[in-house]
Design a protein around this nucleic acid. Structure first.
Length: 470
RNA sequence: GGCGGGGUAGCCAAGUGGUAAGGUCGGGGUCUGCAAAACCUCUAUUCGCGGGUUCGAUUCCCGCCCCCGCCUCCA
């Protein structure tokens, strides 16, 4: 089956072909976090989805050029820096650092670039874009000194979200006392400096101020990837107004359409059936979950296992299920390695297992559930083979097959070695077993369990494995 | 009010005009000093509700209900 994705713009599944004439390079832009607090797992649902997309494209032979922006200037970052009595950069720096750490914990591939809105070259790019938009009468400076996009001059405005502008209803979420605008829907490209901005501001042809949120993505995407992109992702809440505005700005400047060929948006995450919020106490960050004893890959699996366009209900039961599923995967790999090492690895030529069911499922708009279903069917199949005994070449073939899948899933445990204390306890238990001292043997097993190690007895002696692996 | 996404077993979740993948949990079995793991096996006469089309619908059509989101700076 051909690779296809659901494009928000057309609301249809479309076959994927990148703009690159050789069909190899994929230009992908992903909206990143606003660095005013630690990102929460809802944010990471989107980033894990984007990671799955990138890894699958790479598995299919594409070279993905991905950019993820960091929004480091907006109302919230300014408010935070003033509350903390810190310069803006010093306020946002730790959150940027924490974000990179979280990406690593979740095994999310690093983007090729993480541009930040306050970098001089992007401020300059934004100012240049706004100037062009004003020249083309797509933007104007209002009496309040801010510069706004004139949405009535861009007929396509509203097409991504499929909104009829005449029927929009104010939600009161944003202050609507902006009487200076020609149309209530006009959005800010450049925000004139205000008292509460403190020392945050840049010089511009329109006076001191700061960029609007939407223009930064247009400027950074076009600076780093060119005037037209293949894929642009984000959460569904970004469809309107953010991505709609990006189209208006980018196409308004370049004159080239479409700015983005495939728009992919992921649904929201709920926690125990409810919207995440600080007042409900269900607002989780990655460090919160790690502190509760869950590993990065358990969280990754939990966020990954539901199709990106379906709402994901994040629950403790779900995390527990992820843990069990991964434990089964770990045990399967351990058995395969054991079988593989039993033979002469050099002497055998592992035969490639041609099965492509996993990737084929992902070709269909990243159908991860079908893909995982296929993986577990194959795990059962190969476990049966292991039960009846397989040669090392066959075991290696399965490992090679898994390697292809893991390049996309990134769920394999990193090896954990028992420390000295664990080794000593295990040796003591082995001696106790030698004298059939079951009581002592069981006590030591309980103690090892308590320290996070599983102990089991096999024909070839006991086996000690870490229970929860990062 | 407009526009989306979703409603399939205890829970999570694929899927198809021809009779329901997979994960997890639970029961039984093989194995084990006991356990654990793995494997085998059982667990939806049924796919939100009501109509219609059809030899046959969970899948197509019509109407309705419920959950979640967006409607101008939330992934």
């Amino acid at each position: 089956m051909a690779l296809r994705f659901f494009n928000t713009y057309s609301r249809e599944l479309e076959e994927f072909h990148p703009l690159d004439p050789e069909g190899k390079i994929v230009k992908m832009y992903t909206c990143g976090p606003t660095v005013y607090s630690r990102a929460h797992i809802g944010n990471f649902r989107a980033y894990v989805f984007e990671d799955l997309l990138q890894r699958h494209l790479e598995a299919r032979g594409f070279a993905v050029h991905r950019v993820m922006n960091l929004t480091d200037v907006d109302d919230k970052t300014i408010r935070g820096s003033r509350a903390g009595n810190l310069p803006l950069q010093e306020f946002t720096a730790p959150f940027k650092e924490a974000f990179y750490q979280d990406l690593e914990t979740l095994q999310i591939e690093m983007a090729g670039a993480f541009p930040a809105a306050t970098e001089e070259r992007y401020i300059a790019a934004m100012i240049a874009m706004i100037s062009t938009l004003i020249e083309r009468e797509l933007a104007y400076q209002a009496d309040d000194k801010s510069v706004y996009y004139r949405i009535n001059r861009f007929p396509k405005y509203g097409q991504l979200a499929h909104f009829d502008l005449a029927e929009l209803r104010p939600t009161g979420r944003v202050k609507s006392d902006e009487y200076d605008k020609e149309h209530v829907g006009d959005f800010a490209l450049w925000k004139a400096w205000a008292e509460e901005d403190g020392d945050v501001g840049w010089k511009s042809p329109w006076g001191r101020g700061r960029p609007g949120w939407h223009i930064e993505c247009s400027a950074m995407a076009m600076s780093l990837l060119g005037e037209q992109l293949d894929i642009h992702c984000g959460g569904v809440d970004n469809i309107f107004p953010h991505h709609e505005a990006e189209i208006a700005q980018s196409e308004g400047c370049s004159g080239k359409a479409p700015f983005v060929r495939y728009w992919l948006h992921c649904a929201h995450l709920l926690v125990e059936g409810q919207k995440m919020s600080k007042s409900l106490g269900n607002f989780h960050t990655l460090p919160d979950l790690l502190a509760k004893g869950y590993s990065g890959r358990e969280v990754r699996y939990s966020l990954l296992r539901v199709h990106y366009r379906a709402p994901l209900n994040f629950t403790w039961d779900g995390l527990e299920e992820a843990r069990q599923s991964l434990a089964r995967l770990d045990e399967w790999l351990r058995r395969l390695w054991e079988a593989a090492r039993a033979g002469n690895l050099q002497a055998h030529q592992a035969k490639t297992i041609a099965d492509d069911g996993f990737a084929a499922a992902l070709d269909d708009d990243l159908n991860i559930s079908a893909a995982l279903g296929h993986l577990f069917e194959q795990i059962r199949e190969s476990n049966r083979e292991l039960d009846t005994g397989i040669d090392s070449a066959r075991a290696l073939s399965w490992l090679e097959w898994w390697g292809r899948i893991n390049s996309v899933l990134a769920l394999e445990a990193t090896e954990t070695k028992p420390n000295e204390q664990i080794v000593r306890m295990a040796e003591e238990r082995a001696r106790a077993r030698g004298t059939r001292d079951w009581k002592k043997s069981d006590e030591l097993r309980d103690a090892l369990n308590a320290l996070g190690w599983d102990v089991r007895d096999t024909k070839d002696g006991q086996l000690v494995t870490p229970r929860v692996r990062a």
